[in-house]
Design a protein around this nucleic acid. Structure first.
Length: 103
DNA sequence: AAACTGACTTCTC
DNA sequence: GGAGAAGCCAGTT
């Protein structure tokens, strides 16, 4: 069980039409400052369809990362199909950020 | 085992 | 508001 495994589990739990930030996942995984490590785990992503890495965005909803297809463009398209609201080139983090249950 | 890199975040200018 | 620099973590070489 490695840090990445926790990340995969958390990302896999992101509800549809919602997105989470690397920092948030890092925090949920136990290391608030491991945002970078989270990104690396996503890049490794041994659970591609199982772990919706496209639902993971930057701290401000910015489409960072994603090495597949057309990059952020494909990521954006997938999120749009998921029903995630977009503001120009960024996810409407205000409306679509994953609420972990912490009020 | 050590050093480098990377899908990040945040502060300061 | 935009650009630049520093800090942290885990994985890969």
């Amino acid at each position: 069980m490695s840090f990445c495994d926790r990340v995969y589990t958390i990302v896999a739990k992101i509800p549809k039409r919602k997105v989470a930030t690397y920092g948030q996942i890092a925090r949920l995984s136990g290391n608030a400052k491991a945002a970078r490590a989270v990104g690396m785990c996503m890049r490794t992503n041994p659970f591609a369809p199982q772990v919706p890495c496209h639902r993971v965005v930057g701290s401000d909803g910015s489409l960072v990362g994603f090495s597949g297809g057309e990059g952020v463009s494909t990521k954006k398209s997938m999120l749009l199909k998921e029903g995630v609201r977009f503001t120009k080139d960024k996810v409407d983090i205000v409306r679509s950020q994953w609420n972990t249950g912490v009020s």
